[in-house]
Design a protein around this nucleic acid. Structure first.
Length: 552
DNA sequence: CGACTTTGACCGGCGC
DNA sequence: GCGCCGGTCAAAGTCG
């Protein structure tokens, strides 16, 4: 196949839009290892509240310092002495000298006033100095917290990997897996932590990606990939598809020409295979957005090209297939289909990660989908009791949104669904600062639960067994599902904590809310054609969509 | 004329 | 093995 050839072109842009690695893991680390650092070793997410506390402390110090200044200044005849006590810096010397000279030379009756003035100045300087100190301290603390965070992240990842390896050694055959994908799953587990560790790279690799997964021998899970590859091989497509396949080439090259540079940590072929599996899974992760819209497609800031349309079984509305055209090799695709039950609901399913810079409008959605996908896949982490392994026909609820946020499972691809149809207010609110109104009601600390404007229901066809479940959730679209119960073992607690951390991570929620906001703005009929990047396609799609909507 | 959509055909996976 | 189904391709058509 010619894929091996050139097109592969580097993907220099890669996932610039990917969320920072710090994006996950914040909370559990803080909770578990809070000790580190004066700020409590919290993750990034915990910085703000902690910092506030510290700021208050500092201000308290500052206040006392100010009082001292005044007291000193008024208590002593000589001004200079007051200076010494409070600032302890050279700054006061120059100004103090001038003041002193003026005072000394001044024989005016308003001597007292001048004294007071100088006292005030002294106080202000002292305050300024304290603020500077405070600033430095805060910076130091911030860097320390960051360091602690990174260290903890690494530590947890290492532990996870170790734990999994141990389990794999002890009872590889005991792993519960109704899908008969034991090996595959375990491989995934091994990899997932890396995604936690470096989402940016993970997602980039995914693009690049899906890399090794496209190579020769793979687990059954990569069947789709194989089929796609074979299809492309057959068609011998050269342009887009090939570049699209470009992401496939690099992997092949990587494998054939030695270990890929991007996976230096994997020393043996098995590791490479594991990586490929993880990447494959990552690529397959889908994020579905349900929103009410009369338009045929929500404007998410990206440019899409329709490459197919099919009548899906069980739904009178056709399903349209779109490919991102903002970059030639962008692997991102999406499916748009109206809900069979409620045709005002538009279901948009995203797959893959953009490999190019995105406009802000698109960034929100891309970040959200990528984050959701990452979070989704992160749920496939190892669990000692094996509950997580049975995954694919399970559905659980997001702990962050009781009664609304759910995770469901079924289907060949892990899919997370953001259901915006349950929050009618969404369509009416377009608040730029929405990220401060956290959609989830149950988020422990970092969120203000006051706003109920956003209640995205997260369905997930995934391995999120560690999350809490709830029977009150409406059944997902696909298949029949059962509610999973959270695993109770200590190790799974770790997993649960990690997963909860992700869902509770303000970065994720912020991205989510940003995307939702974006969606809202675009979903609204009046805004359906607002996207500058979606010029022609949206118009056409609107027409098509309306006709579809009417016809169907 | 280029970009994009439409649409029938094709392919592989999967269940029976 | 066969047929269904989801997903993709690519030639033809459409539009600005």
């Amino acid at each position: 196949m010619d894929n091996g050839g050139g097109g592969g072109g580097g993907r220099p842009l890669s996932d610039n839009h990917s969320y920072p690695s710090a994006f996950c893991f914040s909370k559990p680390f803080k909770m578990d290892d809070g000790g580190g650092g004066s700020v409590g070793g919290g993750g990034v997410s915990s910085l703000i509240p902690n910092r506030r506390i510290n700021e208050m402390d500092f201000f308290a110090q500052k206040e006392t310092a100010k009082v001292d200044v005044k007291r000193e200044a008024t208590a002593h005849d000589g001004l200079a002495q007051g200076f010494h006590i409070n600032t302890g810096l050279n700054l006061h010397l120059a100004s103090g000298g001038s003041e002193k000279s003026s005072v000394d030379g001044g024989t005016s009756p308003s001597n007292k006033e001048k004294l007071n003035m100088s006292d005030k100045m002294v106080g202000l300087r002292a305050e300024l100095e304290n603020m500077n100190k405070e600033n430095k301290q805060l910076r130091a603390m911030l860097s320390q917290v960051n360091n602690n965070y990174s260290a903890l992240q690494m530590h947890v990842v290492t532990l996870m990997q170790r734990q999994h390896n141990r389990r794999a050694e002890i009872s590889p055959a005991n792993e519960v897996n109704t899908e008969g994908k034991v090996g595959e799953r375990s491989r995934n587990e091994t990899i997932v932590p890396r995604q936690f560790m470096d989402l940016g790279r993970a997602s980039m690799a995914e693009k690049d990606e899906s890399s090794p997964s496209w190579s020769g021998s793979r687990s059954p899970q990569t069947n789709e990939d194989a089929s796609m590859e074979s299809r492309r091989r057959k068609t011998g497509s050269t342009s887009n598809e090939n570049k699209d396949g470009g992401r496939e080439e690099s992997p092949d090259q990587s494998l054939q020409g030695g270990l890929p540079n991007k996976v230096p940590k994997f020393n043996c072929s098995q590791d490479v295979e594991q990586a490929s599996e993880a990447m494959s899974m990552m690529r397959k992760a889908r994020v579905s957005v349900r929103a009410r819209s009369e338009a045929s497609m929500i404007s998410d800031g990206c440019q899409w090209r329709k490459y197919g349309q099919k009548m899906a079984k069980g739904n009178p509305c056709p399903r349209a297939y779109y490919r991102c055209t903002m970059a030639t090799a962008c692997p991102v695709r999406k499916q748009v289909q109206r809900s069979a039950e409620d045709r005002t609901v538009l279901i948009t399913t995203y797959e893959g990660h953009h490999n190019h810079p995105l406009p802000p409008a698109a960034m929100a959605m891309a970040s959200t989908t990528s984050a959701a996908a990452t979070m989704l896949l992160s749920g496939s982490m190892p669990s000692p009791d094996g509950i997580m392994n049975s995954s694919f026909h399970s559905r659980t609820m997001f702990p962050c949104s009781p009664g609304l946020a759910t995770i469901s499972a079924s289907a060949p691809f892990p899919t997370i669904t953001l259901d915006l149809t349950h929050s009618p207010n969404l369509l009416q609110h377009q608040r730029p600062n929405a990220q401060f109104h956290v959609p989830f009601q149950n988020l422990p600390q970092n969120f203000a639960p006051g706003s109920h404007a956003f209640n995205p229901v997260l369905h997930s066809q995934s391995k999120f067994s560690a999350l809490q479940s709830s029977p009150e959730i409406q059944p997902p679209q696909v298949g029949t599902e059962q509610v999973l119960k959270p695993s109770s073992s200590s190790s799974s607690d770790t997993v649960t904590a990690a997963t909860a951390a992700i869902t509770a991570d303000p970065n994720f929620t912020a991205a989510l809310v940003a995307a939702i906001t974006s969606i809202i703005g675009n979903v609204h009929p009046n805004n359906s054609s607002n996207s500058s990047t979606n010029t022609r396609s949206s118009n056409v799609d609107n027409t098509i969509g309306k006709s579809n909507f009417v016809d169907n």
